[in-house]
Amino acid sequence: MHPATRQGATEALGAHTIAMAATFIAFGVATREAGFSLGWGLTSSAAIYGMAGQMVLLGAQPGAGTAAVAGAIMANARFMPMAAALAPLVRGPLAPFCVPFVAITPWAAAMRNLPGLPAPDRARWFLGFALTVWTIGLITTAIGYALAGSLSSGVLRLLLMVNVFYFALMIAAGLSRGGPWRASLGGALAAPLALLLPAGTPPAWGLLAAALIGGTAAFLLRRR
């Protein structure tokens, strides 16, 4: 194994991955309680690899078909700007292999660590990190599936939110060190706009609208 790949895999074994694993355990439990097979849950975790999209697909009504898939894609539309932000840091022949593994946990770690690595090692580091957390996501989905029936609904809701809480604390820690306060403030103020959407509008539209409005406001504020 290339040293950069080994370094990425080693650094993946931290608090961020524990937080992510908690959400995949909850997803595994929810998959079984919804009547889906373990294979369905593992395929969802492997191919979608984004909890918002996975939960949209899991909660879709029978026969939803294309609408359910479209909802899952919209819920994970945030990965597109994340990939665009990552692209300048990861170049070379291995860069295309990094795209399927862009998710919040590996992306946040990459944006923090890649600038300090030699350019030829960045894609290898990212793949080592991302493949490790992706594999852990599959394992913990199976663990959750096996635990179905032994966890209360309150515990499940808490597990689903652990990753959110973790990254909220990371943002707060970043702000205390002079991080991007305009973007954080814009997101926080724009998020309630999702509550103003007309009835029947997919919730994912609220996420996209809040991000567009809050992010644009933060960008303009910084330019000013």
Rank of each mutant, 00 (worst) to 15 (best):
A4Q: 01
A15F: 10
A15D: 08
A21T: 06
A21D: 03
A26I: 06
F27C: 06
G28M: 05
G28N: 03
A30R: 07
E33N: 10
A34M: 00
G35S: 05
A46L: 12
G50V: 05
L58A: 03
G59Q: 12
A60H: 07
Q61V: 15
G63V: 11
F79T: 13
M80P: 10
A84S: 13
L86F: 09
A87W: 14
P93Q: 05
A95K: 03
A103V: 12
I104L: 15
A109G: 02
A109H: 02
N113D: 15
N113T: 15
L117C: 08
D121Y: 00
R122D: 02
T141V: 14
G144F: 11
Y145T: 12
Y145L: 13
A148P: 02
A148H: 08
S152A: 11
S153G: 10
V155P: 04
L158M: 11
F165L: 15
Y166K: 02
G174F: 00
G174V: 00
S176W: 06
R177C: 05
A183L: 14
L193C: 13
A194P: 11
A199T: 15
T201K: 10
P202H: 01
A204D: 03
W205E: 03
G206S: 11
L208F: 09
L208M: 14
A209W: 13
A211L: 13
L212G: 10
A217H: 13
L220Y: 05
L220M: 14
L221E: 06
R222W: 06
R223H: 12
